[in-house]
């Protein structure tokens, strides 16, 4: 056993050391604690309180007890918006992550012009939700958009993809997948964290690229995949701007793109019902929290950390 190994047994051991780490930890966490106490917690607690009030932003809130929750139980548009959001999350997130991972691996190394490709694939993500995105999206999926023009070459008559209730949500999912650049960047960074040494050893032993990918890349990348999964799920549940911009804020046609946060926004800022919007926000928090907790629990079985014993 090496000296390093002996040191390990000391870790997290005796009381005095534990205390020293407490102190160090709190020092490292000081900025975050400050931010939590001063900036984050106050507004969160406020919004929790507002959940139990009627608040139109223009006059002081009035306490109404559980009224908002009762209304939420009966609100069919809310239920519908949850359904839309779930569909969006569970279809577009896996697709986006798979594409991001695939291209990150392809664009990792060994190809001429990598920097250019990476930048080009990242470009759509840079556009974010700028005011131009809705116009651009109609240029792709609108009646006179590129998709229909290409279909016309094959003699297929297209349709208004963005504005048909059956396909509108689909185009928003594609829009989300289209911006796979963000998770791709994180994957790229993660790939470079994998010591080349592992691959050297493996290729010396004659392992194929395919084997290397499944035996080295994937396990070593699991913490990053896990991170991206959590991040994209939270992001997709809160997805707002793209639906807002593309549908002009309506969530239409026929509520087919009424994301939960879009409906929340409509209630809070258009109908001036901020109490109800706050209650909706806390329901969303519970839902996202549950999914995140589930993910963390499941991660024990598939995420591998290099710092584990």
């Amino acid at each position: 056993m090496s000296a390093l190994g002996e040191l390990r047994t000391l870790k997290g051991g005796s009381a005095p050391k534990g205390r020293r780490q407490n102190k160090a930890a709190y020092l490292f966490l000081l900025p975050w604690f400050l931010g939590l106490a001063v900036i984050t917690i106050g507004p969160m607690i406020s919004s929790l309180y507002l959940s139990f009030t009627k608040y139109n932003l223009l006059s002081p809130p009035k306490f109404t007890g559980l009224t908002n929750i009762e209304r939420m139980i009966e609100d069919e548009r809310l239920h519908h918006s949850l359904l839309v959001t779930f569909q969006y999350v569970f279809i577009s997130v896996p697709l986006q992550l798979a594409l991001a991972l695939l291209l990150a691996v392809v664009l990792d190394r060994g190809l001429r012009g990598l920097a250019i490709y990476r930048s080009v694939f990242y470009l759509p993500s840079l556009l974010g939700a700028s005011v131009a995105i809705a116009v651009l999206w109609r240029q792709l999926f609108g009646y006179d958009g590129l998709v229909n023009q290409v279909l016309a070459w094959f003699g297929i008559e297209g349709q208004g993809w963005i504005s048909s209730p059956d396909t509108a949500l689909g185009t928003l999912m594609i829009l989300n997948v289209w911006t796979f650049g963000s998770p791709m960047v994180i994957f790229l960074a993660g790939l470079r964290q994998i010591p080349t040494m592992y691959y050297e050893a493996a290729s010396v032993d004659g392992a194929s690229r395919w084997q290397q990918f499944w035996r080295i890349t994937m396990p070593m990348l699991t913490p990053i995949i896990f991170f991206n999964l959590i991040l994209q799920i939270i992001g997709a549940f809160q997805s707002f701007t793209q639906a807002f911009v593309v549908s002009g804020g309506t969530g239409g046609p026929v509520d087919s793109t009424l994301f939960y946060t879009l409906y929340l926004y409509q209630r809070g800022f258009t109908s001036l019902d901020m109490g109800y919007a706050s209650a909706m926000a806390w329901l969303l928090l519970v839902i996202i929290g549950a999914f995140t907790a589930l993910n963390f629990w499941a991660s024990k079985y598939w995420v591998f950390y290099d710092d584990q014993d």
Binding site: A37, G42, I45, P60
Partner: peptide, 25 residues
């Protein structure tokens, strides 16, 4: 530390509640 953090949290929350009720009279 915990107590101190607790006090801070309480303070900010209390301020927020007070503030939200001062609008638009």
């Amino acid at each position: 530390t915990r107590r101190r953090v607790g006090v801070l949290v309480g303070l900010s929350a209390a301020t927020m509640l007070a503030l939200t009720s001062c609008a638009g009279s």
